[in-house]
């Protein structure tokens, strides 16, 4: 799976979790850009991403994520392990 495919999958997870089917998601998108993306939905989002990609993140990895691009880099790292 390349980064474009991962972004597509992550985009649909974000759109579904936040109930915003039209939301445009890029590598630069972060919680600050979307009102519906609060601390609680952030946890739901990460849990959905873990389930979809069948990976498991540690708190240390999750605490550094600043935007969708960081998330994709982390997923890529996990998938390549």
């Amino acid at each position: 799976m390349n980064n474009i495919d991962i972004l597509k999958t992550v985009t649909s997870i974000i759109q579904e979790t936040l109930e915003l089917p039209q939301l445009v998601v890029t590598n630069e998108t972060s919680a600050n850009d979307v009102d519906e993306w609060d601390s609680m939905t952030h946890i739901q989002l990460i849990a959905a991403i873990e389930a979809k990609f069948k990976v498991r993140f540690a708190l240390g990895e999750l605490q550094t994520l600043k935007n969708v691009g960081d998330m994709i880099a982390l997923i890529t790292k996990k998938l390549n392990k």
């Binding site: 601390s39 952030h42 946890i43 708190l59 240390g60 605490q63 994520l65």
Partner: peptide
């Protein structure tokens, strides 16, 4: 800064023994 993963990481890393917070943060 409302990043619950960061809070958990800080508590584990520094082996924090005392926390003073609001219920909704504890809930997360």
């Amino acid at each position: 800064e409302n990043n619950i993963f960061k809070l958990g990481f800080e508590i584990e890393t520094h082996r924090i023994s005392v926390l003073n917070t609001v219920p909704n943060t504890l809930n997360m």
